[in-house]
Amino acid sequence: MLLVATPNICELRIPFPSSSLAQIALSSLDPKPEPRKEGISKELDVTEDILHVRWRADEARILRVSISSFLKHLSLVVETMDLFGSPVA
C-alpha cells in the first residue's frame, strides 16, 4: 500500500492479488457516499490490480475522518474476501 499526502489531498494505492479482486473492492467501496458532501471529494478507480483512491478536502480534520472511515471499510472488504476466497470465474 502506498500513501501520498500533501496538504488536504491524499492518494492511496492498494495492490490486490488480481484485477478482479481490485474491481470487487472498488464495487464494494465506491457506493459509500461521504456523510458530509461539502468540503470533501473522493475518487476511486482501478488500474490492473491496483485500487486508487484520491481525496481532496477543505480541512485536514475532514480528510482524516474520511480516510479513517474508508480504511475501516477497506479492512472489512479484505477480511470478507479472505473469508470467502477468490471469486469463481
Results as ranks from 00 to 15, higher is better:
residue 6 T to H: 10
residue 6 T to Y: 10
residue 6 T to V: 12
residue 7 P to R: 09
residue 7 P to D: 08
residue 7 P to S: 07
residue 9 I to Q: 15
residue 9 I to H: 14
residue 11 E to D: 10
residue 11 E to H: 11
residue 12 L to T: 00
residue 13 R to W: 01
residue 13 R to Y: 03
residue 13 R to L: 03
residue 14 I to C: 11
residue 15 P to E: 09
residue 15 P to R: 07
residue 16 F to A: 00
residue 18 S to G: 12
residue 18 S to N: 10
residue 18 S to C: 11
residue 18 S to P: 09
residue 18 S to K: 13
residue 20 S to A: 13
residue 21 L to E: 07
residue 21 L to W: 04
residue 22 A to F: 03
residue 23 Q to M: 14
residue 24 I to M: 13
residue 25 A to H: 03
residue 26 L to P: 00
residue 27 S to P: 14
residue 27 S to N: 15
residue 28 S to A: 15
residue 29 L to M: 09
residue 29 L to N: 05
residue 32 K to D: 15
residue 33 P to Q: 03
residue 34 E to V: 08
residue 35 P to N: 11
residue 35 P to G: 09
residue 36 R to T: 14
residue 36 R to A: 14
residue 37 K to C: 08
residue 37 K to N: 08
residue 38 E to S: 14
residue 38 E to Y: 13
residue 39 G to N: 10
residue 39 G to K: 11
residue 39 G to V: 09
residue 40 I to Y: 01
residue 40 I to R: 01
residue 41 S to Y: 07
residue 41 S to R: 10
residue 42 K to V: 07
residue 43 E to F: 04
residue 43 E to R: 05
residue 44 L to S: 01
residue 47 T to K: 14
residue 48 E to W: 10
residue 48 E to M: 09
residue 48 E to C: 11
residue 52 H to R: 06
residue 53 V to K: 01
residue 53 V to S: 00
residue 53 V to M: 02
residue 53 V to H: 00
residue 54 R to F: 06
residue 54 R to C: 08
residue 56 R to C: 07
residue 57 A to G: 06
residue 59 E to P: 04
